[in-house]
Amino acid sequence: MADVVKKATRHGYSEGLVELAAKHEDIICLDADLGHATGSLVFREAYPDRYIETGIAEQDLIGMAAGLARTGFVPFANSFAVFTAGRAFEIIRNAVCYSNVNVKIVGSHSGITPAGDGGTHQCIEDIAAMRSLPNMTVLSPCDFNQAKLMAEVMYEHQGPCYMRTSREPMPIFTSLEDKIELGKAQVLRDGKDVCIVATGVMTCLAKEAAEQLAAEGIDAALLNIHTIKPLDMDSIKAYTKKCGGRVLVCEEANMYGGLGEAVAYGLVNEDGISFDHVAVMDRFGQSGLSGELLEEYGITAANIKEHAEKLVKR
């Protein structure tokens, strides 16, 4: 068997942005002294004059990006998810979303997979925080290739965008030829027994789980949610219905306010729904090895499989 290529979404996005910048001179990349970690340093190498370093000042990162947008640039502001969606939340709210200016924000190191850094740096709240903002579009690509495509999706969309990316190198399973439509779920697998709705790195784990389920005769549908807001409830409803109302949402985020609640909200008036959720159960992260953390927090491929089996047996 050929070695599976593993790469992180943070690097897919950075690579995509550099390629995009060749076509669009109005793109500016900003980082708050985390370029080595977010991956944005490749932009600095390619376009030093269009790379703005704000120092370790995430609030100013967002404010400056808003100012650049107001002078006609398309700024992409980068830092860890916990520092953009977290620390700079209210700047994003007022200077970007309330003002409705064309700023793109990318939060890397989302979820618990940036394992070594521990709970301070593991952002499990960004989906909830960012989707609560009017005018905000929230993106969450599932692998390197999709993150690369997302740079252009963000650029083409007029208005505030937040994208969460991951530190963790994961298998690449989507294609650069995929047609990614903002606000449309990507159907990775059709099925009739259980509808798995997943986002970010969890999509990769859900795909693995779905393949194992198939071997046991459970036919799972798998929807990859690269756009968390606006959420494609039409597809989610259709596939859930096809799967007898059984739906399992998987996200590397806290159980509250994220994709799980968004899906549940969208299904609450439908008949005969059986809902389950693989997510972080309302506790902070901690240091460990990344595999250990996924296990500790109950969000591995095996956990997804187990939850799906229970749903089918319910």
Partner: peptide
């Protein structure tokens, strides 16, 4: 505090342009 941050970004934008 936000206005001054955005104003700084605007001034930088005009410099870049």
């Amino acid at each position: 505090g936000q206005g001054i941050s955005v104003a700084t970004g605007m001034a930088l934008g005009f410099k870049l342009k």
